[in-house]
Design a protein around this nucleic acid. Sequence first.
DNA 1: CCTAATTGTTATAGTAAGAGTAACATATTT
DNA 2: AAATATGTTACTCTTACTATAACAATTAGG
Lengths: 144, 144
Amino acid sequence: MSASTKLSSSVKALCFLAETHPIPKTSREIAEKTGINASKLRQLLSMLAKTRIVISEQGTKGGFLLQKDPKKIHLQEIYCSIEDRKAFHLNVTQGNGSSDDSNLDFNTYFLDLFSAIQVDIEEKMRNISLENIMNQLKIKSKFK
Amino acid sequence: MSASTKLSSSVKALCFLAETHPIPKTSREIAEKTGINASKLRQLLSMLAKTRIVISEQGTKGGFLLQKDPKKIHLQEIYCSIEDRKAFHLNVTQGNGSSDDSNLDFNTYFLDLFSAIQVDIEEKMRNISLENIMNQLKIKSKFK
DNA sequence: CCTAATTGTTATAGTAAGAGTAACATATTT
DNA sequence: AAATATGTTACTCTTACTATAACAATTAGG
């Protein structure tokens, strides 16, 4: 699952939880509503539970529940919860047999550049809340 | 070859051409200097030739030659020459059997978001010239 | 005109990554 | 104890990628 698909899948699930708050929803229910595989959903939601965006309750009558106000959930923290790898990252695995070791400088240069780009992307995502998205998509939150 | 690796490989090759200007260099020579496979280099450089960043000359005594002043070559145009796919792009291949078709709205939302991010990335790259990079890496251009 | 050398493009073989699902341990309620 | 969730790992299948090779197209020089 690509980073972008993970992100949109997570947002879909979170929107559904905001809509149905405060009733816990199982991965199966969310899967039926969103069309995302229940197993994959559990993988995503368990990561979102670790960063306290949702609460997960095991056992009978268990399920997932929004833990934070949609106003206070930002795309960036969702992204960071589900993805450790950078969005725009350099493959430095190139074991070239070059005599010239200026390649090291090149790699450093690009790593720095891509880090700067990554910062920009995260800054953009930091300014978008789940509520913003729901408003734009005209979904009503039932979060108290 | 990932987008980022293509970009850094292209820049390495272009720097080498700027350094050795105006002597045409074969893909084999560039390969030896940069540690990038000659066949891959030809693939990259032939794309850079189509966008008039380099000149390619076939046949005996042929090779590659810088066509533009390093001052006027920007990362963004290099990137666009070698990559048609977007850096941060959404997998909309998710054929979900969901009854709810709000997924269409979600996908549209994220496509728009990722397009905006892409614009930012390209803007950043538009402000970096090959000369900038060479200065930063202390490589001297012999472009007349 | 023929040969050598080079780019341009396609193909190929081997490896790695990813998607989708299944299986099962862990936990919790009744 | 049984039923039902999550959490995590594993498995299969397909897809993508990597690196290289092969060869057609092109050009210079004798």
